[in-house]
Computed example of a mutant assay.
Amino acid sequence: MEEKKKSILDYDTVALDEENHALVIIDQTQLPYQTEILSLTKQEDIWNAIYLLQVRGAPAIGVAAAIGIYLSAREIKTADFTDFYQEFQKAKDYLDSARPTAVNLSWALNRMEEVVLKNKEKTIPEIVERLHQEAVEIREEDIWVCKTIGEYGLTLVNPGDGLLTHCNAGQLATVKYGTATAPMYLGQEKGYHFRIFSDETRPLLQGARLTSFELKESGLDVTVICDNMSASVMRKGWVNAVFVGCDRVAANGDTANKIGTSMVALAAKRYGIPMYICAPTSTIDLSTISGEDIHIEERPAEEVVEMWYEKPMAPDGVKVFNPAFDVTDHDLIAGIVTEYGIARAPYTESLKEIFKKKEEALKAEEKDT
């Protein structure tokens, strides 16, 4: 019998190779042309993988960072806690510098640092093992978080709906299910027969290369459109809801997501289509007051004028503006879907309520254990 060809969804987006002590990722810069699995052990290689978008998507970056800092801790050769902690902080700051906009990177690294500080009375090998356990737990949590976001998201739509998404907030951006695509995958399991429109997402084409690829592999009905076509398909009545992910949510509900998201939000508002942000609570940063306070990463000009072309497509020496993200104002957002419920305006209040639910759930979980 002929062996069934592996789907991209059969691979782990990000994982820990316990035997070889390595971070294992799909090199997403090679998709959809080839599936290349990278096994990374050096901090420089892990930093580059995050910066170069070989591993990308806020949740996946967080998991990769947790595994990466654990692997770094394994290499620290000292029995003294002060020396260990000093080297740990150096490694943490280094990894944290790879991508400034996605809050999950610093969130995961800070969570790993808390493990170190809570166990400072233990031996270094015991601390390293606690870091190992935490990295594995962060990865497993991501699967539960995404599935739960999908379940909440599914309550917002109906069978047969047309859904539009921008960039890639799919399984390739997380461990499993994705965030914005989680309702799509769960709906597929229930026979909802969604029609999905996937923006190309210039300039790196994560929608065309990644989202359409994984959705097609899973059997979903997906159509790729250029970024400037979203208003046209909305005007035709083909879109009933927009689901996108994000890399940071401010306290007032402003969100930073892949460049072009704000244009989708404006078009959706014009045509009365609800736009939902699918955001794990790890992506919500209540210390950031508004979108004005979110640092937007700028990337090389080559991504715009050279990357996909045989020859440069713009005149030599022309100026290029290439922000990786833009901010969608909270008044354009119908709801923020989290693993602890759906936040609605005013977000300054509802996001606090989401965190109260999270705190209560964690306390109940600790009590049970």
Rank of each mutant, 00 (worst) to 15 (best):
Gly160Trp: 05
Asn48Leu: 08
Ala22Arg: 11
Thr181His: 13
Tyr340Lys: 10
Ala314Leu: 11
Thr13Gly: 04
Ala361Leu: 08
Tyr11Ile: 09
Pro323Val: 03
Ala108Val: 03
Phe194Thr: 00
Glu359Leu: 13
Leu332His: 08
Arg270Lys: 14
His295Arg: 11
Gln171Phe: 10
Lys311Pro: 04
Gly150Met: 06
Lys90Val: 14
Leu117Asp: 09
Ala265Tyr: 01
Tyr276His: 05
Lys358Tyr: 12
Thr148Phe: 05
Asp161Trp: 13
Ile37Leu: 12
Leu204Gly: 00
Ile333Glu: 00
Glu3Thr: 14
Gly187Val: 05
Leu131Trp: 03
Met275Thr: 06
Glu360Phe: 12
Thr165Cys: 09
Met313Ile: 12
Asn158Tyr: 12
Lys236Phe: 07
Glu137Cys: 10
Phe325Gly: 00
Tyr192Ile: 11
Lys120Ile: 10
Ala180Glu: 00
Phe194Arg: 01
Ile76Asp: 00
Asp12Leu: 13
Asn322Val: 06
Gly170Val: 06
Tyr347Ala: 02
Ile336Phe: 06
Ala180Trp: 01
Gln43Trp: 00
Lys236Asn: 08
Glu214Cys: 09
Ile37Phe: 08
Ile67Met: 05
Gln89Asn: 15
Pro312Leu: 06
Glu18Ala: 14
Leu266Met: 13
Pro32Asn: 07
Thr123Cys: 07
Asp142Pro: 04
Val244Gln: 02
Lys92Asn: 05
Ile225Thr: 02
Ile259Phe: 10
Asp27Leu: 07
Ala250Trp: 02
Ser218Gln: 09
Cys146Leu: 04
Ile67Ala: 02
Gln133Gly: 10
Asp93Leu: 10
Pro280Cys: 07
Gln133Asp: 15
Trp308His: 15
Gly237Cys: 11
Glu44Ser: 13
Ala173Trp: 03
Asn119Ser: 08
Val327Ala: 03
Ile296Trp: 04
Ile46Tyr: 01
Phe197Leu: 10
Val115Phe: 03
Ala268Glu: 01
Asp316Tyr: 13
Glu140His: 14
Ile37Val: 14
Ile149Ser: 02
Val116Arg: 02
Val115Arg: 01
His166Thr: 04
Ala334Gln: 08
Ser282Leu: 08
Leu204Lys: 07
Thr348Leu: 14
Arg111Cys: 08
Val116Cys: 09
Val128Ala: 04
Glu121Asp: 15
Thr29Gln: 06
Glu200Ile: 03
Val14Pro: 00
Ala79Met: 07
Glu121Leu: 12
Glu298Leu: 13
Glu200Gln: 10
Trp144Cys: 12
Cys146Thr: 05
Ile138Tyr: 01
Ala60Cys: 09
Asn257Lys: 10
Ala98Leu: 06
Ala91Ile: 07
Ile354Gly: 00
Leu38Gln: 14
Ser290Thr: 13
Leu109Ile: 12
Met229Tyr: 06
Ser212Gly: 07
Glu297Cys: 09
Asp329Gly: 13
Ile26Val: 15
Gln86Leu: 14
Glu18Pro: 08
Ala98Asn: 05
Ala73Phe: 02
Thr13Phe: 04
Asp329His: 13
Glu36Arg: 15
Thr29Phe: 03
Gly253Val: 06
Gln89Cys: 11
His21Thr: 11
Met307Val: 15
Gly160Leu: 04
Gln86Asn: 14
Glu349Ala: 13
Ser198Val: 11
Ala22Asn: 08
Ile294Thr: 01
Arg235Asp: 11
Arg99Lys: 15
Val249Gln: 01
